[in-house]
């Protein structure tokens, strides 16, 4: 590879294999949050960590090609709006945060009404927000040396 940005070839090869597995693990943690340990918060942190790993290993241009800053900002707001929208739509049935969907059979994936949808919203919000904050900490830095 002629690409000089980022770390060495060994790190890049390992990250190329493992980043998708980390993304898959984060998605599993988010989706099974109502059945097993996990949920929106840890899953979102793991999803954000996968992109931060890409950004550290390949340099920020490659990471921006996968997920640009504007896309991260849009995803962040979209997650917050999904969560707030679910909470507000409880008003149609009476009260704020009403669990209005069908509860389903226990111990199956699509159960527990609004809880999986809220988990997805929170996961998007936390992951995209952390990635955006990391980009802000590293890329937007104002470097004024020599004074």
């Amino acid at each position: 590879m002629n690409d000089r940005s980022g770390m060495t070839v060994i790190v890049k090869t390992v990250v190329r294999i493992s980043a998708s597995l980390i993304l898959l693990y984060g998605a599993y943690i988010v989706a099974y949050g109502q059945l097993t340990p996990g949920g929106g918060f840890p899953g979102g942190v793991i999803l954000g960590g996968a992109f931060i790993l890409l950004c550290l290993a390949f340099g920020k241009e490659t990471a921006f090609r996968k997920l640009s800053v504007n896309a991260a900002s849009v995803l962040d707001s979209a997650g917050a709006l999904i969560f707030l929208g679910i909470a507000l739509s409880g008003y149609a049935w009476g009260v704020f945060f009403l669990n209005f969907l069908n509860k389903g059979i226990p111990f199956h994936l699509w159960t527990a009404g609004i809880i999986p949808l809220c988990n997805i919203g929170i996961g998007l919000k936390v992951g995209a927000g952390l990635f955006g904050a990391f980009i802000a900490l590293t890329a937007f830095r104002v470097v004024k040396k020599g004074d």
């Binding site: 996990g38 909470a87 527990a112």
Partner: peptide, 19 residues
């Protein structure tokens, strides 16, 4: 709530305002 993870049931159903 139908969620077997009681913590998920608390943070997203019983105490959604906190979240």
């Amino acid at each position: 709530t139908g969620a077997s993870n009681i913590i998920s049931a608390i943070i997203l159903d019983y105490r959604g305002y906190d979240t």
